[in-house]
Every structure is written in C-alpha cells, then in structure tokens.
C-alpha cells in the first residue's frame, strides 16, 4: 500500500508538471489569455498539490 501510494504520488507529480509546462507554453503573453493554457495550468497545479499532499501524508508517522 505504501509503495503504491508513493508511486501514485510520483506519477501525479510528473503529470502535473507536464500539464503545467504545457499550459505555460500555450498561454500567450499578458494581457491576452488562453482558455486552454490557463485550464492546463489549473489542472497541472491541482495534480501537483494533490501529489505533494500525498507525500506529506505518506511521510507522516502513523
């Protein structure tokens, strides 16, 4: 369970980073906005936040 949790968290972190980078590339310079770019940034940051939380929970003493 612990090994699978840490693998899932690592996968989420990697996926989040990929989405975040893709969103940053798609996003045009301000003040223009891209719905796709900002959506990718939001989803990427969400995955990263979930993954970081999983690492904290996994590392906490039970």
């Amino acid at each position: 369970m612990a090994a699978r949790t840490i693998l899932a968290a690592a996968g989420l972190l990697g996926l989040g980073l990929i989405l975040l980078i893709a969103g940053a590339i798609v996003e045009p310079a301000a003040p223009a906005i891209s719905q796709t770019g900002e959506s990718l940034i939001a989803v990427g940051l969400t995955f990263i936040a979930i993954a970081v939380g999983f690492f904290f929970a996994w590392a906490a003493p039970s």
């Binding site: 719905q35 900002e38 959506s39 939001a42 989803v43 940051l45 969400t46 936040a49 929970a57």
Partner: peptide, 23 residues
C-alpha cells in the same frame, strides 16, 4: 471574462483546502 479555467481554478482552490484539512 474567463471560461472553463475559472471552474478548474475553483477546483485547485478546493483541492488546496481539502488537502490541508485532511493533513
């Protein structure tokens, strides 16, 4: 002025809230 990214930013907001609550 935003589209669906507002919905996803709201998801990020509530993910941060739920993550801190659960931790």
């Amino acid at each position: 002025g935003y589209g669906v990214q507002a919905l996803l930013a709201n998801l990020l907001w509530h993910t941060i809230w739920g993550a801190n609550l659960g931790l």
